[in-house]
């Protein structure tokens, strides 16, 4: 169900670079301040190629001083949202929503495991602070490529101390998710935010541990894949169309831009409404959604066009359109 967004105006109070690619942006709400619960995000109105669009960013920390904080990673293959956010300077205006939460923290569990990958640290940071505040038992694993990519690590360490384990690829370490799960109380909960590969691994390990699926909580940013974002071609034989999807556009956006009517809702690979049947794919299909199961992704029968891509080459798909016909065949019954 589409969210009804209660838009309001804010002013950028300050920005601060946490890493060369992650910027903390402080937003002074012009109207009433709504206290965010841990795991909340703000929807913000961004302008991309002179057109308005909406992006969601996790809120960092409890914001008890009445100022919203988000951390935005500047993405090389950004569709334009992060570049717009990075263009904001103190005094800039920003239209944003009240905090909403799709990644709520359930208090009262005997134990917690929090796993963050890269910029996925933002909601996990808020969860960790709330658990520390509540006196809960928990552990945080924060995986990152290099020390220079760590955002909020010092602040996190200051609040949670040795309950934080930083795992850096540059030091030759990898997160042992299965071992981390084994160390979690049987009634404990596991919260994950990170790139899709980490999430898939977490789901796999959680499933293998035999624990109830509802105690694995996760949020994805829908923009990370197993492969880099490169341009690819979409063919729709039934409509006689061939569309090029640039690196900085989603397949869904490209389809709509070329006049293919689509239905969709979540735009982050959760609901499955935008999924299309795959007829043929040249390159590997980079499934970036959480709607299809692992087995379904292996079968490659469908892809969620709001987030998923093909790594080079072309993909042939069908759409729901039984109305239009290929150019040149109009009038054929």
């Amino acid at each position: 169900m589409p969210e009804v967004i209660d838009w309001r105006e804010g002013v950028i109070r300050a920005t601060r670079d946490l890493t060369p690619r992650v910027r903390m942006i402080e937003i002074d709400p012009k109207g009433d301040f709504v206290q965010p619960s841990p795991g909340s995000h703000l929807n913000v109105s961004v302008v991309i190629r002179e057109r308005p669009d909406v992006r969601s960013y996790s809120i960092v920390g409890p914001c008890s001083d009445g100022v919203y904080r988000i951390a935005v990673k500047l993405l090389a293959d950004s569709r334009g949202g992060s570049a717009y956010m990075w263009s904001l300077v103190p005094g800039s205006r920003l239209t944003h929503s009240a905090p909403a939460n799709h990644f709520g923290l359930a208090l009262g569990r005997p134990d917690y495991l929090l796993l963050a990958g890269g910029i996925g640290v933002t909601p996990i940071f808020s969860h960790a602070l709330a658990l520390a505040e509540a006196g809960a038992r928990f552990r945080v694993v924060y995986a990152c490529r290099s020390r220079g990519d760590l955002a909020l690590a010092q602040e996190l360490e200051a609040s949670v101390g040795d309950r934080l384990d930083i795992v850096l690829t540059e030091e030759g370490r990898r997160v042992d998710i299965a071992a981390a799960i084994a160390g979690l109380d049987p009634q404990g909960e596991f919260y994950v935010c990170g790139p899709i590969g980490m999430l898939e691994a977490a789901k796999r390990c959680w499933g293998a541990s035999g624990r109830p699926a509802d105690r694995l909580r996760f949020e994805t940013f829908g923009s990370s894949g197993q492969y880099p974002s490169v341009p690819f071609t979409v063919r729709i034989p039934r409509l006689g169309k061939e569309i090029v999807v640039p690196a900085n556009q989603t397949m869904l956006e490209a389809l709509e831009a070329s006049g293919v009517e689509m239905i969709f809702d979540c735009l982050r690979g959760e609901c499955g409404l935008c999924a299309l049947p795959i007829l043929k794919a040249d390159g590997p299909v980079d499934h970036r959604d959480v709607f299809l199961s692992e087995a379904e992704k292996t079968q490659n029968a469908k892809l969620c066009t709001c987030v998923s891509r093909v790594c080079g080459g072309a993909i042939s798909v069908d759409t729901a359109d039984r109305w239009h016909r290929p150019a040149g065949r109009e009038g054929t019954p």
Partner: peptide, 21 residues
Amino acid sequence: FNSMGRCTHMPAQKTINPSAC
């Protein structure tokens, strides 16, 4: 939905929307 309010089954799909609760 289980007694914590978390969705444990959705019709006609193999996964569960993570924000469903």
